[in-house]
């Protein structure tokens, strides 16, 4: 097992560590679909801004490259 694999294994094992800690026995939502929706929207809301920022940044990067190629040393 390479060192990279070992690091990944430790990281993944870390994900399971806090699993036993549940604070409130009565206050999570009743349905599995609702919990799933929370996770789904969490992923959606987190990825969306990063995608938008990333694509604008990429567009700007392309524009800079374009301008450097066309500008005669100005």
């Amino acid at each position: 097992m390479s060192r990279v694999h070992a690091v990944w294994a430790v990281a993944l094992a870390g994900l399971t560590l806090p699993g036993v800690a549940e604070a409130c026995a009565v206050c999570f939502s009743a349905t599995e679909s609702n919990r799933g929706a929370f996770i789904g929207t969490t992923v959606f809301l987190t990825i969306l801004p990063l995608l938008m920022i990333g694509s604008v940044a990429f567009y700007v990067y392309r524009r800079v490259k374009e301008m450097e190629a066309t500008e005669p040393g100005a």
């Binding site: 560590l17 800690a21 549940e22 604070a23 999570f28 939502s29 919990r35 929370f38 987190t46 801004p49």
Partner: peptide, 24 residues
């Protein structure tokens, strides 16, 4: 900073699977 916010809800009754990820 977009991946951490749910640590404010650890005892609000969020899904423990989510709490794991947000702890990390």
């Amino acid at each position: 900073s977009f991946f951490v916010w749910a640590h404010h809800q650890f005892i609000a009754g969020i899904d423990p699977r989510m709490a794991n990820v947000f702890t990390v």
